[in-house]
Write a protein that binds this DNA or RNA. Structure first.
Lengths: 343, 343
DNA sequence: TTGTACGCGTTATCAC
DNA sequence: GTGATAACGCGTACAA
């Protein structure tokens, strides 16, 4: 007999236990101190028997805490964000937080819209990866103003402003390692396919590349930098361009782009890694799927995501919590990098 | 001066407009009928000036409608679900619904836990893709009982029970087409790498394969069926096994598995498509990334997802709405299927 | 149109 | 110290 279960109220529990609602509330929220043990027992018992659980809506209305975190990402279909959001959701669920997910579709107006919407829903915190657009001056000012006005704890994930709380991979250091891998294999003419340079992730990776080259007394000429969008398509365009310019190795700032580079090489009749070495970034599953397994930098997505959650929860709790941090990516050496013929 | 904006209440708006809260509520909810136009204007004006927006929590507390849909998927990091959830979120946002996302991590206990949790939060509807486990008898009974008791509109997505509302790709028909493609190229010894056969998606695809073979007077021997889990790894295992058994073509029930088949072929020194044709399912982006572009069945994820949302919203609205449906996948012929040497 | 009860808890106040 | 009473949070719905 599956009766539709109407909601059990706290009054019913109180009645059953023969105490006041107040008492029930106190007991169930662990503010027992002043209540005699036998009473506590009776209350708990009654609550259990009636399958009582407090209504989050009613509770939130008065406490102004929803136990919900809002996440805004450009596109959950992007494997990087998908993985990150998964980790976040699982990590937050352990702390009894739920997640409202929003896709900005890489449009700044949606960033704003969703942030307002989430604030309107009284979420306890925000995890934000704004659109690339958000990082140009007029837009970032609007974003900052909005967040300042809102008074909701937030952190930036992967894309960020230096002066606001953020969590990300150590882009500079990781790119330094990646470029180092190519240099160590004797490559001296190295092309890079970047993501949007409006994003610190790409800018910092570029800086890392430059540092690595610098240590070899090299510089990165502008015409060996192709600015893309972290997707297969721009990888292909960039790969084509760079190969024509005679690079012996390409560092693609995402695995998707690395895939594009593979495609362009194939199309041009060049072999990887014989004619051109390639290194990617992310270690998304496609790296293990390519005909020539892709060397890449593996982001510790899970660690970053779960630490990011800790950080946010710390701030929600009122403290400063953990401060902004970056974690290094690890080099996963596979078969797409080979000694240069000049080596 | 960005003052922290405390919430504006309906009272303030009422006061400013010189009317009662009731009137404000009526106007703002479009139940104007009985209110003179000038009053409406004054109210709207006041609301605008004060930046008033109704508190969803308070509203939900009384209406028992949250404008939230709960989505439970096994793993948002799976590109198929990522894409689907993205489409759903966007489609629902257009109708002013937000999405709480849960990953069951393919564990049945989590299915139940999350469904209860979402129900506790009074979500207006549920979109469910239960764990594979949920489809074995004792578990499915528990799931059914829970849903029956809950009295919340729900639909199943991709994995389903025939007698409950669902939305999915037409697995049988699509697999029939895929197998037909192989048969049309002269292949007669065809192996399949399936997903979990507990899932109707895999069972129905298998049925489609059998129907196609049947039309050629063939049957599918058990030892040419490898049951996997839709992932690269099982694709590789299956590919290895089937290739050893001398198939001339493999139908992998997911692109990830097709990737695995590619890997196994490579490892065994076989070429695709010369030594073995391969066809996949999903058209996830990896298909366009492989050295030999993968022929595959493209699921109309967006259409299914958005129709699924319509269906759910219809049910939330009280009507029966659209009933369960499936949409056909489309054959995307690329280079991984070639005429059999026996052809 | 509007007053008022109500939804369901939490918290502050007050009496025992 | 214990526990009941009442106000409150913020809207919506119904009767007047």
């Amino acid at each position: 007999m599956s009766e539709k279960r109407a909601r059990v109220t706290i009054r019913e529990v109180a009645q059953r236990a023969g105490v006041s609602q107040t008492t029930v509330s106190l007991v169930l929220n662990g503010k027992d101190a002043s209540i005699p043990v036998p009473t506590r027992e009776r209350v708990r018992e009654a609550a259990r028997e009636l399958h009582y659980s407090t209504d989050p809506l009613a509770r939130a209305l008065v406490t102004r805490r929803t136990n919900i975190v809002g996440i805004v990402v450009p596109d959950i279909a992007n494997p990087f964000f998908a993985q990150a959001v998964r980790c976040m959701q699982v990590a937050l669920a352990e702390r009894r937080y739920d997640v409202i997910l929003c896709n900005s579709e890489e449009r700044f107006e949606n960033d704003l819209r969703y942030i307002r919407l989430l604030a309107g829903r009284s979420v306890d915190g925000l995890i934000l990866t704004p659109s690339a657009e958000a990082f140009s001056p007029p837009e970032s000012a609007r974003l900052r103003a909005l967040l300042a006005q809102l008074d909701i704890p937030y952190i930036f994930f992967d894309r960020y402003f230096e002066d606001m709380p953020w969590a990300a991979v150590d882009n500079e250091g990781s790119a330094y390692l990646a470029a180092g891998e190519l240099l160590a294999h004797g490559h001296r003419v190295i092309g890079v396919v970047t993501g949007p340079l409006a994003l610190n992730s790409s800018r910092n990776r570029l800086a890392g590349v430059r540092r690595a080259l610098g240590e070899y007394g090299l510089i990165l000429p502008d015409d060996l930098i192709f600015e893309g969008r972290y997707d297969v398509e721009t990888g292909q365009l960039g790969g084509e361009l760079l190969l024509k310019r005679g690079v012996s190795a390409v560092f693609a700032f995402s695995d998707m782009q690395a895939c594009g580079v593979y495609a362009s090489a194939r199309r041009m009749g060049k072999r990887i890694p014989e004619d051109c070495s390639v290194i990617g970034f992310d270690d998304s599953f496609c790296s293990s799927v390519l005909d020539v397994p892709l060397s890449t930098m593996r982001q510790p997505v899970q660690e970053i995501a779960s630490q990011a959650c800790n950080m946010l929860l710390g701030r929600i709790g009122g403290g400063q919590g953990i401060s902004s941090f970056s974690l290094p990516a690890r080099l996963i050496a596979r078969a797409s990098v080979k000694n240069s013929e000049n080596a």
